[in-house]
Design a protein around this nucleic acid. Structure first.
Length: 572
DNA sequence: CTCTACCATTTGCGACTCAC
DNA sequence: GTGAGTCGCAAATGGTAGAG
């Protein structure tokens, strides 16, 4: 995804500079670059005419659509520099294009840099990489025009760990890109200034990067919302007049359809559907809601309803532990550093559903209204208006829980709930086991690999006995007795965690808010030392070396990072 | 003000095509 | 066969606004 400038001819030469259009197009392949460079020259002419860059860019749709404001900044800066250069040295672009070319290198590099990315999917990942590339260039190319602390780090100081999948994909993208770069001549490579860092960067550096770079969601947030205090933006770009970093929030364009409350019947069906099809909303819809009776609902509605944390959590807790586990998984995702065992866990989850129902029901049809009531009762009702005759909508405790996380209360509630369901003896058993699991799990966390389970499970008992006979010391074997209740248990164990997690981050809005908070808090917490060093130290240390030589920066950062990554990869 | 149904946008993933 | 680039669809996520 590269940008270039092309001039859109106006009818006459009566080109009122102020209304000139400049578009930013995507470069789809390498061949286009030359063509785009030509357009850059055309742009030079405009610049030489003293055209108002701000007014040009301000009207450029492509420019406005440029996803990341650092890109905008880069473009703007390049243009500015060129214009100043032209002006200062009284260059005639048509006669002295050698010098001009030299000076506009930055702009072309920028164009060049981005040309290797496809334009369709996975834009956010690409965006992350782009941001990183730009940062690297800024950092290692010693650009005096920038404030000392003008780095991606300083702009997006949040530290949030992308999910494993994102990272994996991201790494793939990176490698692919790197490969492409390597194909280029050394000359070209040098032109890129700073990119050599990417090409030559060490694994550790890469690991550091992917662990610190803000995930797509954060970047998205920056783009969509003014999460970053405006003041800091102003501080960084004090003279900015044009870059509108804050997206204007447009009012909803469509008329909202009338709100339809969920009836108990619908909730019950949804519950059944979730039991049977989990989060396959389309399937659930097809099976349970496609009849005319519920024609008002859509798969998206089902999903939204199910997203209601209480519904999900309670359902999960009530029907089977594995559900809950999934909920937890997704929530932890962002903060899960290692992510190494994610897949395994997923497998566990699936096998749990497939093999033996870990829940209390083996058939979704076993749900009935009483169950629904139970599910509802599970969530503490907020003393609400008494008019809730038919739908005692589980008033979400989100408020109180989110804010205060009253664990005590929850504990009480749990007890009450347990009382309620004492009839079902199994549950108690399960819970006991779960507790055991919880304890054991902590010990085990390192080596919880589902792959082992199947074997161990079968042989375990025998081994145990043998082991005991031979060496009671065999600690490892003892531990293995834990995985005994492998799949379902483990999942179950997470149940409790899930309930707390869910309770605390229930309402979508609140959860998102929380997330944001976390992002910024994290910066101030553990990130503080890191970035602070990173920002203040490295960039100076590095920036001071105009050389494009691979960064010394990695060292300090690595120091921080290494332990973390090591910690995570340890399990092997 | 809170809850939550509804809306908008992004992300994940499998399927497909095409070039090598 | 393999890898890259696309695309379609469904799920996930972030956000808005009506109702009480």
């Amino acid at each position: 995804m590269a940008k270039s400038f092309s001039r859109i001819e106006d009818d006459d030469d009566d080109i009122e500079d102020e209304t000139m259009n400049v578009t930013l197009d995507l470069i789809k392949n390498r061949d286009d670059i030359e063509k785009q460079r030509e357009t850059i020259w055309a742009l030079h002419l405009l610049l030489a005419d003293g055209i108002n860059i701000h007014s040009i860019l301000g009207q450029s749709k492509g420019y406005q659509q440029t996803q990341h404001f650092t890109q905008q900044f880069t473009i703007l800066k390049s243009l500015n520099n060129i214009q100043v250069f032209i002006k200062e040295f009284e260059i005639d672009p048509e006669l002295d294009d050698q010098r001009l070319e030299e000076f506009s290198k930055g702009l072309r590099d920028y164009v060049f840099l981005l040309c290797y990315f496809g334009k369709k999917r996975d834009t956010s990942h690409r965006r992350v990489l782009e941001a990183w590339i730009i940062e690297m260039r800024l950092r290692y190319k010693s650009d005096e025009a920038l404030e000392e602390n003008t780095t991606i780090d300083s702009l997006m100081s949040g530290k949030l760990i992308p999910s494993k999948r994102v990272r994996t994909y991201f790494k793939t993208l990176y490698n692919r890109t790197k490969k492409n770069w390597q194909i280029q001549s050394q000359e070209e490579m040098e032109k890129l200034g700073g990119v050599d860092f990417i090409v030559n960067s060490l694994q550790d550096e890469w690991d550091y990067f992917i662990s610190v770079i803000p995930p797509p969601s954060l970047i998205l947030a920056y783009r969509q919302r003014a999460l970053m205090p405006k003041t800091s933006f102003d501080r960084i770009y004090p003279n900015n007049k044009m870059i509108n970093f804050y997206k204007k929030i447009e009012p909803r364009s469509t008329i909202q359809k009338p709100r339809v409350k969920w009836t108990p019947e619908e909730e019950l069906l949804l519950m059944r559907g979730m039991f049977k099809y989990d989060t396959q909303w389309a399937k659930i819809y097809e099976v349970y809601f496609s009849s005319t009776e519920f024609s008002g609902r859509t798969p998206v509605n089902l999903k939204d309803k199910a997203r209601s944390a209480e519904f999900k959590a309670n359902y999960a807790e009530f029907s089977g532990s594995h559900r809950k586990k999934k909920v937890v998984e997704s929530e932890d995702d962002d903060f899960d550093l290692d992510g190494e065992d994610e897949d395994d866990e997923e497998e566990e989850f699936h096998s749990a559903t497939e093999n033996g129902q870990t829940g209390k029901y083996t058939d979704e049809s076993e749900f009935d209204y009483s169950d629904l009531e139970k599910v509802r009762r599970k969530s503490p009702k907020k003393t609400t208006t008494t008019n809730n005759n038919n739908n005692n909508k589980k008033q979400s405790p989100s408020k109180s829980t989110t804010k205060e996380k009253e664990k005590d209360k929850q504990g009480k509630k749990r007890k009450e709930q347990e009382d309620d369901y004492e009839e079902e003896e199994e549950e108690e058993m399960e819970e006991e086991e779960e507790q055991e699991e919880e304890e054991e799990e902590e010990e085990e966390q390192d080596d919880e690999y589902s792959s082992d389970y199947s074997y161990e499970e079968e042989e375990e008992e025998e081994d145990k006995e043998k082991a005991k006979k031979k060496k009671g010391v065999m600690a490892p074997l003892k531990k293995k007795s834990v995985p005994k209740k492998p799949v379902s248990k483990k999942l179950g164990a997470k149940k409790s965690a899930a309930s707390t997690t869910n309770a605390s981050s229930t309402t979508p809005s609140s959860s998102s808010r929380k997330r944001d908070e976390y992002i910024y808090n994290s910066d101030s917490e553990d990130e503080q030392d890191e970035p602070s060093t990173t920002r203040k130290k490295p960039s100076p240390g590095v920036a001071k070396k105009p050389s494009s030589a691979p960064p010394p920066k990695a060292a300090p950062q690595k120091a921080h990072k290494a332990p973390a990554s090591v910690k995570k990869s340890k399990p092997n």
